[in-house]
């Protein structure tokens, strides 16, 4: 199986601060990867470099065998890598309907500015894609609510739904369940992962909750001090003694190793 995303020797420095270093990995198609690590370990920096928000200081990123290192984020998005944000980035004064419609409209015309200036916003096929996403993420009840008034969890779902417009092949989720109550976390994650599976999207998600990682990741990347210290299936990566001491112990919702493995056991 050839990799859809290949990262080679990625490094990012801010002045004398090294935020990420020596990151090398391959992501096969349709894999679901959980990224763990303490705050400041370099997780978001990694996501930001892949999606073009930050320009790597060193190293290269290949997407479908094409070098995308240093491309602007909009170009990377156009090629098929989308992302969501720690804090949902939606248009607050627009309704859910309008948010999704805007995303669909942009995706359909983003190649040509001139096209986008003469294509009417409301065109039939665009509405079809919007409807599909609304159903997939159960946003129907909130249609006419302004994004600013949405509950946190729904706003994050909207953010992800918008990222999925235009069917990206790779999706990076930056803490999809942060700010969502513990009871709802699994429901939200279940919804997201089901939607992604149905669209065969390769997904990398940053997550603090080890239980969620254990349940939804096929592979875990453990970050510490800007680099990957463990990479493998959850059973193996989460059991790694270094990961145990450095990350699981410090995670905000730290879960004892036994419980994690138990959760993993339940799953398989």
């Amino acid at each position: 199986m050839s990799a859809i995303l290949s990262v080679r020797g990625l490094e990012k420095t801010f002045g004398s601060v090294v935020a990420a270093r020596d990151i090398t990995l391959d992501v096969p198609r349709q894999q679901s990867i959980g990224i763990i690590g303490a705050n400041g370990a370099g997780k978001t920096t990694f996501v930001n470099m892949i999606t073009g928000y930050l320009r790597p200081s060193k190293g290269s990123i290949l997407f479908e065998d094409r070098d995308i290192t240093g491309l602007p984020s909009r170009a990377i998005t156009r090629l098929g890598i989308a992302r969501s944000f720690q804090v949902a980035q939606v248009f607050p004064s627009l309704t859910v309907d309008e948010n999704v419609a805007a995303a669909v409209a942009v995706a359909r015309t983003r190649a040509s500015l001139l096209m986008s200036a003469i294509t009417p916003l409301a065109s039939a096929p665009a509405t079809a894609e919007a409807e599909e996403l609304m159903t997939l993420f159960q946003l129907g009840d909130y249609r006419n609510a302004r994004a600013a008034t949405l509950p946190q969890g729904v706003r994050k779902l909207l953010d992800i739904a918008m990222a999925l417009v235009g069917a990206p092949r790779v999706l990076l989720l930056d803490e999809p369940t942060s700010g969502i109550s513990i009871e709802e976390k699994f429901a939200v994650m279940e919804l997201i992962m089901t939607a992604l599976a149905s669209r065969r999207t390769t997904v990398l998600f940053v997550e603090h909750d080890m239980e969620i990682v254990a349940r939804y990741a096929e592979r875990v990347l453990a970050f510490h001090d800007g680099t990957v210290i463990a990479d493998g299936p959850p059973t193996q990566a989460l059991a790694d003694p270094t990961v145990q001491t450095l990350i699981c112990g410090t995670a905000p919702l730290g879960v004892a190793a036994g419980e994690v493995l138990h959760a993993q056991g339940l799953r398989s």
């Binding site: 909009r74 627009l94 995706a107």
Partner: peptide, 19 residues
């Protein structure tokens, strides 16, 4: 129609693939 999005959240627009 993207005037409000431009005013409110440029970053989302960039990550939808438009400059």
């Amino acid at each position: 129609s993207l005037a409000v999005p431009v005013r409110e959240r440029e970053i989302r627009l960039e990550f939808l693939g438009i400059s």
